[in-house]
Amino acid sequence: MSKMNDMDPAGAVLWAPHDAEPDMIATRTLGFWLYLLSDAMIVASLFASYLVLNHRMNAAAGPTAGAVMHPLTALWETILLLSAILAYGLSLVALKRKDRRGVLAGFGVACMLGLGFLVMEGHEFADLALRGAVPERSGYLSALYTLVLYHAVHIVFALLWTAVMAVQVARQGFTPNVVYRLLNLKLFWFFQGFIWIYVFCFVDLTGALHVH
């Protein structure tokens, strides 16, 4: 009998009156993650063009990968960048403890190491350009500069964003808006590590090999 009452349109409850609120933090971090994946599609197309242009015909009698790549320098850059990412990750461990000074200290270390990475990479490419290996020299060099500098621009934005978040953490504390931005920035930093290991492996390391 009670089942019949439930079927009565006048008394039926079609949805729970107190439905769960959308989880603001989870929604925004997932949205930002999807953006990062679409950004990575641009990186994938840059890798595809690098693969195609990394050919002696496209070097136009100019330097090839073996001549411009210094894998040992790239290892130091890898150490600096991964350390910067680790510092940011550890600042989020401090966030879990509600340790505002720990978060800011992690940001400072991450920014210093990230800046070191950019200085080292800038030095490497300035050296290349001074030796005449400028992007307009050949199709190969154009592809190399575009791919590596696209990643470097991301690190510049990671540093700027971290600096902005340091100000927001200091002034606003750990409000929901600040926390979701910190989580998005974590995804951003970690994802740059992802892309860098591919640059390191398939541009720097394979540059020393003689295979296509």
Binding site: A20, D23, K96, F174, V179
Partner: peptide
Amino acid sequence: MSTECQDPLQHPQVQMAHGGQYI
């Protein structure tokens, strides 16, 4: 699962930070 009115630091994505795993 509403987190709007809760402490944002209790969100699972904050709580999953793990120093040992990062290192």
